[in-house]
Design a protein around this nucleic acid. Structure first.
Lengths: 137, 137
DNA sequence: TTTGTTATTAGAATTATTCCAATAACATAA
DNA sequence: TTATGTTATTGGAATAATTCTAATAACAAA
């Protein structure tokens, strides 16, 4: 187990079990924005056999502790993202790919007593590749 | 059936059946941001008996034609919104309420070849009422 | 009327997620 | 060490949102 991850989880008040460390490491390895199913499948494939329920428990725990975020674009498609500086997302409606977009966090115009804890900004449309493909035809 | 709605649906290339007109009218009546289930329940209650599948078909058609938008915050909670000028949403994580927030549409910093068709901006945190409640205790 | 197209319907199927009860892992106390 | 308590994991059942499917209904055109 990665000591670095163990320490990080502890910092966030999370008991660093082997499953949790593995799930975190996978999220941190930068494989895009996996769904629970993708996380489960990869860890299964790599012989770390455990339950789908554990993946749900773990990502929910990470979310709660603010270690990761999620992005919902399609119904039935919740993807997870390790926390870092704010960034927006771009979802291509043709190929389904999800991109990170570096930009400043938009602030709520008139907060009027609302306390904003989190900002989710998702653009959708067509990515350059799909536009090129569409133009070819 | 509302002639006005019939005309509007035609403009968007949608065959204005009675179910579709009723669903649109309900969305336009400004009852917050209903889920499919809420739309279904209300129309059932009012004696317009029809199928849940029709509600799904219809909102998906409206979405496709750009007549409405959807907002996803929680998993298993897709809410619908009639299209109008851009506005952000605020989701209260305590009481679950969803608010419209009038503000300017944030633009993607460096579009870099991406074609943006839609922007979804959702703030989340605590609404004034829930903050007041939390402070009382 | 006949034919073809489109819309609606009920219910089955699928899928994501949560729940639950049993077990395992681990730490602490005696 | 053993006993005890707490927390985590597990597989499978349960739930809920959504889509699919095949039959029928509605409607328009020929």
């Amino acid at each position: 187990m990665k000591d670095q991850t163990v320490e990080l989880l502890k910092e966030y008040g999370i008991n660093p079990t082997s499953q949790r460390v593995r799930i975190y490491d996978y999220l941190a390895s930068g494989q895009g924005h996996p769904t629970v199913d993708e996380i489960y499948a990869v860890l299964q494939r790599d012989g770390h056999l455990f339950s789908r329920a554990t993946v749900y428990n773990t990502v929910n725990l990470f979310l709660e502790k603010g270690l990761i975020h999620n992005v919902k674009v399609e119904a039935n498609e919740t993807r997870y993202d390790i926390t870092s500086a704010f960034h927006a997302h771009f979802k291509c409606t043709s190929c389904g790919a999800l991109f990170d977009i570096e930009m400043e966090e938009p602030l709520m115009a008139d907060t009027a007593g609302f306390r904003v804890d989190r900002t989710s900004l998702v653009f959708s449309g067509q990515c350059p590749v799909c536009q090129a493909k569409a133009a070819e035809v």
